[in-house]
Simulated assay, not measured.
Amino acid sequence: MAPMATHPLTIGFDLDMTLIDSRPGIHAAYRALAAETGVRIDADLAITRLGPPLEEELAHWFPDERIQEMGDRYREIYPAYAIEPTLALPGAREAVAAVQELGGRAIVVTAKHEPNAKLHLAHLGIAPDEVIGWLWAEAKAEALREHGASVYVGDHTGDVRGAHTAEALSVAVPTGPCDAAELRAAGADVIIDDLTAFPAWLRAYSADLA
C-alpha cells in the first residue's frame, strides 16, 4: 500500500512531452553531437521516441563501449543547444499552478539528467516544488512513493507503469510518442487531451477526495 502523503495533495508530472516540448532542443543537441563525433545520428527519428533514458537512444548510433562517454558528452553540451529552443506545452504552467493553488505540492519526476531538467523549468517559468531526475518507468515509483504522490501525469506508457508501481492514479496526455489508444491499452486511469484540461480535472478529483 502506498504511504500516506505528508501534504493534502501531491501530484507528480513527467517532463519531456508532458510539461515541455523538448523536441527542437534535443534535435539541436543530437545534431551537435553528430557534428562533433562524425557519427551519423538521425535526429528527426530520435525525437519521435522520447521518454526512455538517453542511453537507450544512443545505443542506436554508438557501440556499447562508447555509450557512457557519449551520454556524458551529450549532457555536457545539452544546455548550450537544448534549453533555448524548448517550449512549454499548452497548459503546463497552469497545471503545476493548479496543484499549488489547492495547497498541494507539484513534483516533476523525469528520466532526464536532473540539472538539465531544472534548467528547462527555470527557463520556462514552470515552478514545481521538487524535481527528481534519472528515473524511468517503474523506477519513477521510488520518487512518487517517497513524496506521497497520489497521481502521476505523463505522456508515455512507461509513465503509466511508473504510476501504477507506486499505486498512484495514472493520468495520461497523448502529447508525446504514445497515442491515446496506446496509453489506454497500457492501463492509464484517466486520459485528457492535453494539460489545458488538467485544472478542471484536478478540481473534480480533489472535490471527490474531500
Results as ranks from 00 to 15, higher is better:
Arg93Ala: 15
Ala111Asn: 06
Met70Asp: 10
Ala59Cys: 13
Ile77Gly: 02
Tyr78Asn: 12
Pro90Lys: 03
Ala98Asn: 03
Pro90Gln: 06
Ser150Asn: 12
Gln100Val: 04
Ala139Lys: 07
Ala82Tyr: 11
Asp155Glu: 12
His60Val: 02
Ile67Phe: 01
Arg105Asp: 12
Glu138Ala: 03
Val153Phe: 03
Pro90Glu: 08
Tyr74Gln: 04
Asp155Gly: 10
Leu135Phe: 09
Ala88Leu: 08
Ala82Lys: 08
Ala122Asp: 15
Gly71Phe: 05
Glu94Val: 14
Leu124Ala: 04
Gln68Trp: 11
Leu58Ile: 03
Ala139Asn: 01
Arg75Tyr: 12
Tyr74Leu: 11
Glu94Asp: 15
Glu76Asn: 07
Arg75His: 15
Leu102Ala: 02
Gly154Lys: 14
Val108Thr: 00
Leu124Cys: 01
Ala88Cys: 05
Ser150Glu: 15
Glu76Val: 08
Leu89His: 07
Ala80Val: 13
Leu144Met: 05
Phe62Met: 03
Val151Trp: 11
Ala92Trp: 07
Ala82His: 02
Ala97Glu: 15
Leu121Ile: 08
Gly125Tyr: 09
Glu84Leu: 09
Arg73Asn: 04
Ala139Gly: 03
Glu130Trp: 01
Val96Pro: 13
His60Asp: 09
Ala141Glu: 08
Ala149Glu: 01
Asp155Leu: 11
His123Trp: 10
Asp72Gly: 14
Val99Lys: 00
Ala111Phe: 00
Asn116Ala: 05
Trp61Asp: 05
Ala139Leu: 05
Pro115Met: 03
Pro115Thr: 00
Asp72Leu: 15
Pro90Leu: 07
Glu101Gly: 06
Val131Leu: 03
Asn116Lys: 02
Ala117Arg: 06
Asp155His: 10
His120Ile: 09
Gly71Val: 07
Val131Asp: 08
Pro128Tyr: 04
Glu114Arg: 14
Asn116Leu: 01
Arg105His: 14
Ala82Glu: 02
Leu58Thr: 05
Ala88Trp: 11
Leu89Trp: 02
Val99Gln: 08
Ala122Val: 09
Glu69Ile: 09
Ala143Phe: 13
Gly154Trp: 13
Ile107Ala: 05
Glu101Ala: 13
Ala137Val: 07
Ile107Ser: 00
Val109Gln: 01
Thr110His: 08
